[in-house]
Amino acid sequence: MADNNSNNPKNTNEVTDPGRRSFVKNTGIAVGGVAGGALLGGLFSSRSKNDSNSNTAADKGSGKEKRYEEARMYFTRIADFAILEQAVERIFPEDDNGPGAIELGVPYYIDKQLAGPYGSNVGDYRQGPFIGSKAAASDSSLDRGQIFINGLRTMDAESQKRFDTNFVKATEDQQLEIMTDFADDKVEVKGISSKGFFNLLRSTTLEGAYCDPLYGGNRDMKGWKMKEYPGAIASYAHMIEEDQFVKMDQVSLTDYQPK
């Protein structure tokens, strides 16, 4: 492999603060170029509304423990990922019980799933013709990754059409209105029913909230803690007969599996 200067990891090591603010500041010199323009249009401006909530994955990343596994593996456009973040947070919002989908790592969880065999339907029967109902994601000729792209961009287009603003900048109520219509199968999405896309979005959101943290979701087992779900406990034989609820500390597979 050529030791191209621009790809040299040493250059990135010079950026001491990987948080979004300093990243934007550092790349500010490139404003006017293609990359800078896309960043400002898709990422920075679209997220500014949420800065007061400090609710985005990137914000959570700064100042806290660095999570090197949190970078996009599947989504190429930051704008698509930003829509995903808002959509999953509406499905599983932060509340008095605890963190919402973004803080639990759900967007990165979904990104990782779509980058792998699940995203390209490797285990599924894919011989055509793809006729009949598109009620379920797997009945579509699109793979799951493509369904996410088409679904998220259609949500954005609906927001532009109805509210003259993109999905990420729309108010929570406007976002909910669009998502409800998706869930009720009232929106046209190319290659899949809007309900089929929404069900996939919902199911992967719950997966990301409650999977073992090894997959990048359920960060710090906070999903399990909210639900009082203990995780990978070796044995319940000692308490299975109890008639009172027994609260337990959470155990992840990182701790449980023999090494």
Binding site: G123, Y125, A137
Partner: peptide, 26 residues
């Protein structure tokens, strides 16, 4: 069983065209 090698097709009545059960998600 992964369905990429083999699956079932399903329909309700004799005059319908059956379609495959494509995924273990379903």
């Amino acid at each position: 069983q992964e369905l990429n090698k083999e699956t079932l097709t399903i329909r309700n009545t004799l005059d319908e065209t059956a379609t495959p059960n494509r995924s273990n998600d379903t």
